[in-house]
């Protein structure tokens, strides 16, 4: 199932570093004033796997996650991000609210989300290129049966 635009920007903000988000915000319009409705607060997510990779679910282990909910004007912004960076969770929630507002969405998409997506694409490509360089062909030596 393809993801909605909102799912994509929330995923982008969850993966980005706080310093990168702040750098992008320097070139963006000021974020609208906001009120914290919940958090930022750190808790856990129990990560589930599947037996055999595709079978019945099992509880694999936990990870830290920080969430924040804000109100900015009419919009409610949410963020759930891996790790314990409260300031980043709050920024992500404020951006989630600003991106839902059609008046400011385009500006924040261009100034923040698109550059962050480009950074992530670049990071993944660099890893994939390292992995591709370690791709091998094993030769099977002739055995007595051959």
């Amino acid at each position: 199932m393809s993801k909605t635009e909102r799912q994509l920007w929330m995923a982008t903000l969850a993966r980005a570093g706080r310093a990168e988000i702040e750098r992008c915000l320097a070139d963006a319009p000021a974020l609208p004033t906001h009120k914290r409705l919940r958090g930022p607060e750190t808790g856990l997510v129990m990560v589930r796997g599947r037996a055999g990779g595709g079978g019945a679910a099992f509880n694999f282990g936990e990870m830290t996650v920080t969430r924040c909910t804000v109100r900015a004007g009419e919009r409610i912004g949410h963020a759930y991000i891996a790790g314990r960076d409260a300031a980043k969770a709050e920024l992500a929630a404020r951006l989630d609210a600003a991106l839902q507002d059609s008046a400011s969405a385009d500006a924040f998409m261009r100034a923040v989300i698109e550059p962050l997506q480009a950074l992530e694409t670049e990071r993944r490509a660099a890893l994939a290129a390292r992995a591709a360089a370690t791709k091998v062909d094993f030769f099977t030596l002739a055995t007595m049966r051959s």
Partner: peptide, 28 residues
């Protein structure tokens, strides 16, 4: 000391972005 907010959806390990992948049963 931390509250549990949620359980995740089961991981889609088939969609892993591989840094390493080997098999000892098939060469190619």
């Amino acid at each position: 000391t931390l509250p549990r907010f949620a359980a995740s959806l089961p991981l889609e390990t088939g969609a892993i972005r591989p840094l390493r992948r080997i098999s000892a049963v098939f060469k190619d």
